[in-house]
Amino acid sequence: MVCIRRGIKAGTALLHCGDGNISPADFSGLIEVEKSATQTTSRGIGNLIVSDFHEEEINS
């Protein structure tokens, strides 16, 4: 799931592994991010504490 926030430094990707199959140990240092064809999600990111990033979502 992609979560876009103004308050993230360009060039940095924040990774939250959730309780799915992503292991933090599989990644470190540098990564690439691409759009995925699949659209399967269970929880979504609606539960992110809304003011977590003290700004509104950028939906457009």
Partner: peptide
């Protein structure tokens, strides 16, 4: 709880044609 997510700046998201809530693949680079 939320799904696993990748947080990106608007610039980086735009570069990759990603929007809020899109599903993305990440791959390690060593």
């Amino acid at each position: 709880m939320t799904d696993a997510y990748i947080g990106l700046s608007p610039q980086d998201a735009q570069k990759r044609d990603l929007r809020q809530g899109d599903v993305a693949t990440i791959s390690p680079l060593g």
